[in-house]
Amino acid sequence: MAGQKILIVDDSKTIRMQVRDFLPKGNFEVIEARDGVEGLDVIGREHPSLVLLDFFMPRMNGWEVVQRIQADPKLKAIPVVMMSGRREDVEKIVPELFDYFEFVGKPFEPAHLFRAIKSATVKAKERRHNKVPVHAIPTEPRRTAAVIRAEVQPLQSAPAGVQDEVRSLQAEVQQLRIQNVKLQQEVEALRKQMVQLVTYVRQKI
């Protein structure tokens, strides 16, 4: 990656420093962003050769950043490594994400990071050649075909008034799903802040 840029996006300064230390020494510039909004701005301005991206962040999470990247033809081929200590939650929210981007679970060792970077690079090349469409990146948690059929079939045979009420309830449920994801992000952010605070207090004692 001679003469190129690597972007680390994470709301934890500790994680950003750790990832920076893990990266091999070479002729590339390492830049940082504190959250998804700042990270997206840096991506659009700097066009990095690799993005290491935390999934759960305040203001804009990694999932939303990935969607924005994929919507821009000039950025969609950038290799992305998603980072999180909660792989199970990530898989529930966007399971298809792993088909296009690499994932590394926190905490990780340098070897884990290197493997993830190599795999992300391979997947990025495949996306470039296959021209993966934007709609291939999920915009909501995956639902199985059986669940979708169970929702649609009874609705089609119900009276019009009932159908409207059911649709209204479905919209409310979807909104609650979105709010739940945001709440999880806020809890994760608070947990990180608490860990940083405890670490700081211990250093001062």
Rank of each mutant, 00 (worst) to 15 (best):
Gln175Phe: 10
Arg127Glu: 00
Tyr100Ser: 13
Gly36Val: 10
Lys13Arg: 10
Gly62His: 04
Pro95Arg: 03
Arg68Gly: 07
Gly3Gln: 05
Glu91Ser: 11
Lys74Ser: 13
Glu109Ala: 07
Ala77Val: 14
Leu53Lys: 03
Phe108Glu: 01
Thr199Cys: 03
Asp54Phe: 03
Val162Gly: 07
Val51Gly: 02
Gln153Gly: 03
Ala160Glu: 11
Arg149Met: 12
Asp72Tyr: 08
Phe55Glu: 05
Asp21Thr: 03
Arg177Met: 04
Lys76Pro: 10
Leu113Cys: 10
Lys118Trp: 06
Lys25Trp: 00
Gln203Asp: 02
Lys123Leu: 11
Met57Ile: 12
Val122Gln: 09
Glu88Gln: 08
Ile205Met: 13
Ile93Trp: 02
Val198Lys: 07
Leu113Ser: 03
Asp41Cys: 01
Glu32Gly: 05
Gly85Trp: 00
Asp54Ser: 12
Lys76Cys: 13
Phe114Asp: 14
Asn27Asp: 07
Pro159Gly: 09
Leu53Trp: 10
Pro48His: 08
Lys125Gln: 01
Leu53Arg: 04
Ser168His: 07
Gln153Thr: 14
Thr144Gly: 15
Leu23Gly: 03
Asp10Leu: 06
Val181Gln: 15
Asp21Cys: 13
Glu151Gln: 13
Pro133Ile: 10
Val90Asp: 04
Val122Asn: 03
Val122Cys: 05
Glu172Cys: 14
Ala158Ile: 05
Arg149Asp: 13
Val104Gln: 02
Ala171Ile: 06
Val201Ser: 13
Ile148Trp: 01
Gln4Phe: 02
Phe98Lys: 11
His47Tyr: 14
Met57Glu: 03
Ala145Lys: 12
Phe101Leu: 11
Val104Gly: 00
Lys76Gln: 05
Lys125Ser: 03
Gly85Lys: 01
Leu113Asn: 05
Arg142His: 01
Val19Tyr: 04
Met194Pro: 07
Arg87Trp: 00
Lys131Pro: 10
Arg20Leu: 00
Met1Asp: 01
Val65Phe: 11
Ile178Lys: 12
Met17Glu: 04
Gln18Asn: 08
Ala158Trp: 05
Pro138Phe: 07
Gln18Glu: 01
Gln70Glu: 13
Gln193Thr: 01
Val173Thr: 12
Lys13Ile: 09
Gly44Val: 05
Glu46Met: 09
Arg86Phe: 15
Glu38Ser: 08
His112Met: 01
Ala136Leu: 02
Asn61Met: 09
Lys118Asn: 06
Ser157His: 05
Pro79His: 02
Val94Arg: 14
Val181Ser: 05
Lys125Arg: 14
Gln153Pro: 00
Lys74His: 00
Arg45Cys: 04
Ala136Tyr: 07
Ala120Gly: 06
Glu38Pro: 13
Val147Gly: 02
Val80Ala: 11
Arg149Ser: 14
Gly44Tyr: 03
Leu155Ile: 10
Thr199Gly: 14
Ile69Asn: 07
Gln196Cys: 08
Pro58His: 04
Arg86Ile: 11
Arg202Lys: 15
Asp35His: 15
Val9Tyr: 01
Val173Asp: 00
Val94Cys: 10
Thr139Val: 11
Lys131Met: 06
Val166Gly: 12
Asp35Cys: 15
Met17Asp: 12
Gly26Arg: 09
Ala189Leu: 03
Phe55Trp: 09
Gln203Lys: 15
Ile117Cys: 13
Glu126Val: 13
Asp99Tyr: 03
Pro48Thr: 09
Leu176Ile: 14
Asp72Asn: 15
Val19Gln: 05
Leu53Glu: 06
Met57Phe: 06
Val66Pro: 08
Lys131Val: 09
